[in-house]
C-alpha cells in the first residue's frame, strides 16, 4: 500500500439480510482515502454510502454484515481484527460524526462526560482532571465556551452539538474522521460555518476526512477528491475539480446537470429519467444501464470494470473501456 494512502478499501461487500432476500448495499467496492485529504462520498439515498462509511469502522450490527473484502487502515487489515479488538480502533484512530446531532448525544449525560468517557476508555491511565483539561481545550478550539461542558445536550443548539460531535471524534486525535451527512440537519448558515471548521481542522491537525453527503454542493465547497456511488457500486472517483469540470460517468454527468444554478438562464431544471434500481434484483450488466442516455447493447450484459480513464480519474463505464469502444451507441 502506498504511504500516502491512509485507508484502502478493497472489494468490500456489505449485505443486509431481509425477509425478501439478501440485499447487497455495498457491492465489491474499492476506494482509497489519502492522508490529509477531504474525500467527498456522494450518491442518492440508499446507494450504500452510509453503509460504506459504517463498514469502515465495522460498525454493522443486526441484519447487516460484511460479506467480503479487505479494510486496510494505516498498514493493517481491520477485517483481521477480532470483535474485541475493534473498539480500540473506534474512536481512537477513526472517529465518526453522525447525521443528526440532536439524537447522537446521550440525553442524560453531560457534554463533559461524553468527552472524558471517550478519552478514558482509550487511555485509562489519564486522571479525571487531565481528561477534563483536555476536553476544555478541545471544545474551546472548536468555539464552545468551557463552562458549557457542564450542560446537557438538550441545552445546546444543533450547530453546537455538531461541534461537540466533532470534538468527540477528535478527542483522541483520530487520523480519520468519517462524517456521515454532518450538515443535513443544520440550516445553511450553520452548515457553511461547520464546513469552514472542517477545512480548518483538516489543515491544523492534518486530519483526513471522509465526508458522506447527498449534497454535491457541499462536496464542491470542501472536498479535495470526490467519489460517486450508484446502486451499491462505485461509479466514479477523481479530483474534485476534474470530476466537476469533466465528469466521465453518465450518472455523474446527470447528477451535476441536476444541480440548480441561478446564473444559468434555462428555466427548466434537468431531471434524470427513472429511479435507482431495487438492490434485491439489480439489473444485469451496468447498474445504470436502464437510465443511461448513452446505453449500448453490451451495457445490458457486461459489468464495467472500475478502471482509470485519465490518470487518477476512475470511472466504471464501458464507454471508456475496450468492450464498449467496439460498440455502436443505441441512442444519442
Amino acid at each position: 500500500m502506498p504511504a500516502d494512502i491512509l485507508y484502502s478499501v478493497r472489494n468490500l461487500t456489505v449485505e443486509y439480510k431481509t425477509r425478501a432476500g439478501v440485499v447487497r448495499a455495498v457491492d465489491n467496492v474499492s476506494l482509497d482515502i489519502r492522508r490529509g485529504e477531504i474525500l467527498g462520498l456522494v450518491g442518492e439515498s440508499g446507494c450504500g454510502k452510509s453503509t460504506l462509511g459504517k463498514a469502515l469502522m465495522r460498525l454493522h450490527t443486526g441484519p447487516a454484515s460484511i460479506a467480503g473484502g479487505e479494510l486496510w487502515f494505516d498498514g493493517r487489515d481491520l477485517m483481521k481484527l477480532s470483535e474485541r479488538e475493534m473498539p480500540d480502533v473506534r474512536g481512537a484512530e477513526i472517529g465518526m460524526v453522525f447525521q443528526d446531532p440532536m439524537t447522537s448525544l446521550n440525553p442524560v449525560q453531560r457534554i463533559l462526560d461524553h468527552l472524558t468517557e471517550t478519552i478514558q476508555t482509550h487511555e485509562p491511565e489519564i486522571s479525571d482532571a487531565a481528561a477534563r483539561a483536555r476536553s476544555e481545550e478541545l471544545v474551546e478550539r472548536l468555539g464552545i465556551r468551557r463552562e458549557r461542558l457542564n450542560e446537557y445536550p438538550h441545552q445546546m443548539s444543533g450547530g453546537m452539538r455538531q461541534r461537540v460531535m466533532i470534538s468527540l471524534a477528535l478527542a483522541l486525535r483520530a487520523k480519520l474522521v468519517i462524517a456521515d451527512e454532518p450538515t443535513t440537519s443544520l440550516d445553511v448558515i450553520v452548515e457553511a460555518k461547520f464546513l469552514d471548521l472542517l477545512k480548518e481542522l483538516q489543515k491544523e491537525f492534518g486530519l483526513t476526512i471522509l465526508l458522506i453527503t447527498h449534497n454535491i454542493g457541499v462536496v464542491a465547497e470542501v472536498a479535495d477528491r470526490v467519489a460517486v456511488m450508484y446502486a451499491a457500486k462505485m461509479a466514479e472517483v477523481g479530483d474534485v475539480n476534474e470530476v466537476f469540470a469533466d465528469p466521465k460517468h453518465p450518472y455523474t454527468q446527470g447528477l451535476l446537470k441536476s444541480v440548480p444554478n441561478i446564473r444559468l438562464e434555462e428555466a427548466e431544471l434537468y431531471k434524470m429519467e427513472g429511479a435507482p434500481p431495487n438492490l434485491l434484483h439489480p439489473p444485469a450488466g451496468c447498474r445504470f444501464n436502464p437510465r443511461c442516455p448513452f446505453v449500448m447493447e453490451v451495457c445490458r450484459t457486461q459489468e464495467p470494470a472500475f478502471a482509470p480513464v485519465v490518470g487518477d480519474h476512475y470511472a466504471s463505464c464501458l464507454l471508456y473501456q475496450e468492450a464498449g469502444m467496439k460498440q455502436e451507441r443505441l441512442h444519442g
Partner: peptide
C-alpha cells in the same frame, strides 16, 4: 451507535 463508534465497550 455514536457511543459504539467512539469505542465504548
Amino acid at each position: 451507535a455514536a457511543a459504539r463508534a467512539r469505542g465504548i465497550r
